Simulated assay, not measured.
Amino acid sequence: MTPNVLFAAHPSRWTIYETPLRSAFAELGLSPHLAPDIPPAEVDYIIYTPNAPLQDFSPFTRAKAVLNLWAGVETIVNNPTLTLPLARMVDPGMTQSMTEWVAGHVMRYHLGMDQHIHNPDHLWVPHTPPLASERQVTILGLGALGSAVAEVLLSLGFAVTGWSRREKHVPGVIAHHGSGGLATALAQAEILVLLLPDTPATENTLNTETLARLPKGAFVINPGRGPLIDDEALLDALDRGHVAGATLDVFRTEPLPQAHPFWAHPKVTVTPHVAAETRPTTAARVIAENVRRGEAGEPFLHLVDRRSGY
Rank of each mutant, 00 (worst) to 15 (best):
M113L: 15
D114N: 14
D114Y: 09
Q136H: 03
W163G: 13
I117C: 02
A150S: 15
L131F: 10
G112N: 09
L142H: 08
G146M: 01
Q115T: 07
M98N: 07
T99M: 13
M98L: 12
L111C: 12
L111D: 09
S164A: 15
G143T: 02
H110C: 00
L111R: 15
S97N: 13
L131A: 07
L140F: 07
P129F: 10
V125I: 09
H127Y: 14
Q115C: 00
V137S: 00
L111N: 12
L153A: 03
Q136Y: 02
L156P: 07
L111W: 10
P129K: 03
G162E: 13
S147M: 02
M98F: 10
E151S: 15
A103P: 00
D121H: 14
H105S: 00
I139Y: 12
L154S: 09
F158D: 04
Y109A: 07
L131I: 01
V160F: 06
L156T: 05
P130E: 04
G141A: 09
H118W: 13
G157D: 04
G112R: 12
V160Q: 09
A132F: 04
A144E: 12
G157R: 06
H118E: 14
V106I: 07
V125R: 09
H110M: 01
L145S: 07
I117V: 13
L156I: 05
A150G: 05
W124G: 00
S147A: 15
V149D: 04
V102Q: 11
A150C: 08
E134N: 03
I117M: 05
S133A: 09
F158S: 01
P130C: 01
S97Y: 05
G143D: 07
G146H: 03
